[in-house]
């Protein structure tokens, strides 16, 4: 981001930008347009009888929002939260949902040519894969990722 003109251009092109976070050694990407804010881990009020990956609810400036552990939801074993653990608040069909991730890395613009489709016939939460110089990023498809959570809500 060298100058202002460049900046505006990048905001216009929000669609190419991804918020990168990591879980263990893998990198995941979320469309930046979905992300509302990033919080450090805070006290979570647990809820009884919900899916194990729903960690509970938090108070975000008077608004109560649910938080989900991405690790658990992806089937990766749990680990204790530390000071790098973050909650990414996203806007999912006008609902605010917090995602607990190991670490938020950076915001990246990924040119279209570096994005490749995921393997065919392979049901997963991945919408595409970004090929970067030093790493591979799995871009989460929020529709499929939250499908089982959303089915009862949408009419």
């Amino acid at each position: 981001m060298t100058n202002l003109a460049n900046d505006t251009k990048q905001i216009d092109g929000l669609n190419d930008r991804y918020l990168l976070f990591s879980i263990d050694d893998s990198y995941y990407g979320l469309p930046l347009a979905m992300a509302l804010e990033i919080l450090t881990i805070q006290s979570i009020t647990r809820l009884p009888r919900v899916a194990p990956y729903i960690k509970g609810i938090i108070n975000l400036r008077g608004k109560v929002i649910p938080v989900l552990d991405v690790r658990t939801k992806l089937g990766i074993s749990e680990r204790a939260y530390d000071d790098k653990t973050c909650i990414i608040v996203i806007d999912l069909h006008d609902m605010h949902v917090g995602l607990i991730v190991d670490m938020v890395c950076e915001v990246l613009s990924v040119p279209q040519e570096n994005i490749i489709p995921p393997p065919k016939n392979y049901a997963s939460y991945i919408s595409s894969v970004s090929q970067l110089d030093d790493k591979i990023v799995l871009n989460l498809d929020c529709e499929t990722f939250f499908q089982n959570d959303l089915e009862q809500i949408r009419v």
Partner: peptide, 26 residues
Amino acid sequence: FPIFLNKYDLKNQGLSGCSVLGDGSI
């Protein structure tokens, strides 16, 4: 409760809602 959690039907499990307390906890 957030609509996101409607699936779990907390209302019929003895929890009618939640509340933010003075210290910010729920």
